[in-house]
Amino acid sequence: MNFLAPIGNFTLGLLAEIGRIFIFAWEAIGRGVAPPYYWHQIGTQMLRIGYNSLPVVGLTAFFTGGALALQIYEGGSRFNAENLVSSIVALGITRELGPVLAGLMVAGRVSAAIAAELGTMRVTEQIDALVTLSTNPMKYLVTPRIIAAVLTLPLLVLVADIIGIMGGYLVGTRSLSLNGGAYIKNTVDFLTFGDVSSGLLKAAAFGFIIALMGCYHGFHSKGGAQGVGRATTNAVVSASILILAVNYLMTALLFTGK
């Protein structure tokens, strides 16, 4: 029965880690409600997380929209459904690809940056210094990053939706000779508020995950430069996996009710 021991140890370790993450998140949210509020910190983080991620998210959305248009045109031509390109590109981008790809790109960029910054602050005693200066590090470092990510990810995804649809439009009209007016009309007629808002809701959840994972792993970093490197990797991997898992759960809840 010895083979069960490592499985048991792994399960207990995983449950303990999940518990620690929940407590960390609860503390970050709970402390965010009470003053003082670090507005300047929130603004700075919104700029770093949102504005600085625009190029990478925009390029990802543009090329994904274009590739999606090509695939749907090629696949649809097998059963004379080429005219569905605009509708499916819009649906695919707003409901799934926009939030998921933006989430993954921002996870790679922002989760890693947060974990590295907080991890370095931890190993160089800067977080301890905050405490000695009567400043709660959870409130000063963690809560503003979570608030900023939850607010900016939906905005980023909105931009990604527009650029992604634009990518599909450009490929559709330039490469596939689709009619531009008809393309836009089909997109506008077919898209509903629910398609866009569900993606934005997902984006807010992904923003929470990205900031939480970056902060959690960075905050608990130990062991010098190697520890900071480990925290950075763990932040990106855990944020990416959670984004994909939560995306499935939210899709099931929002669109199928199951």
Binding site: M121, T124, Q126, A129
Partner: peptide, 12 residues
Amino acid sequence: FGMLFQGAALFD
């Protein structure tokens, strides 16, 4: 309290 840390621990 005031505290001088070993590595100064200044905020980068």
